[in-house]
């Protein structure tokens, strides 16, 4: 039987994917939110004066970046509950994985952005009597945050795509939904094409939003 491409199936599949898309978005946004907090903490810890604090952050960053996310997901969802006896839902596990994973990359973004702020800014803050933390909060952080936004947008795209790996722990996100549909209609070509299109539309929207933001940033003052 020769293969016949049926564009109609692609079109029909897209609305069926929306349920999974919603979950993909929730996990991505939840994961990025906690990942940003985690990454900010780890990034600032990497700049600490204390060796132990730096090392702790370094260990986190290196161990996450040095292992596949798929392994991390299986370990957290199947492995950890066996050791501690607490089961977590696939969605919670998914958010944790994305958070811990994006956090490790965000840490480097945060560290780089904070380090890129001219040393004179810290000195000027200290010279008017602000403490180190106050200078960080009112002067360094707001400027660093602005520089973080483009790389964070990039991380957003990466994390969004990474959620597809969560299908292995049974999270009914976009990819998993696609797989379930093919199990019924056997139209793998059309269905995965539809899945790919949905991802592409989302990632293109994010990167265009970023381009718009950067353009506005480069033309604005202050």
């Amino acid at each position: 039987m020769a293969f016949q491409f049926e564009p109609a199936v692609v079109i029909e599949t897209i609305p069926m994917l929306m349920r999974g898309l919603k979950l993909t978005f929730q996990i991505t946004l939840g994961g990025l939110f906690f990942g940003f907090l985690l990454g900010s903490a780890a990034g600032l810890m990497k700049l600490s004066r204390h060796f132990l604090v730096r090392m702790l952050a370094g260990a986190y960053i290196e161990s996450i970046r040095g292992t596949p996310m798929l392994v991390q997901a299986m370990f957290l969802y199947y492995g950890v509950p066996m050791a501690v006896g607490i089961r977590i839902s696939p969605i919670t596990a998914g958010i944790i994985i994305i958070a811990v994973n994006s956090g490790a990359y965000t840490a480097e973004i945060v560290r780089g952005a904070v380090q890129s702020i001219n040393r004179g800014q810290m000195e000027a803050g200290r010279s008017i009597g602000l403490t180190h933390s106050q200078t960080m909060l009112y002067i360094i952080w707001p400027q660093a945050l602005k520089r973080m936004i483009p790389p964070l947008g990039n991380q957003f795209i990466i994390s969004l795509k990474d959620t597809s790996l969560l299908m292995v722990i049974g999270v009914g996100e976009l990819m998993r939904t696609g797989q379930e549909i093919t199990a019924v209609n056997f139209r793998a070509f059309e269905v995965y094409m539809a899945v790919a299109l949905v991802y592409l539309v989302m990632t293109l929207s994010i990167s265009n939003a970023m381009k718009f933001y950067e353009k506005r940033l480069s033309s604005s003052k202050g």
């Binding site: 001219n118 004179g120 800014q121 000195e123 000027a124 803050g125 010279s127 008017i128 002067i139 707001p142 400027q143 602005k146 202050g222």
Partner: peptide, 13 residues
């Protein structure tokens, strides 16, 4: 108080 060669004003304020 201190005044620096490179001014070091806070550009975001």
């Amino acid at each position: 108080g201190m005044v620096f060669q490179q001014f070091n004003l806070f550009p975001h304020m």
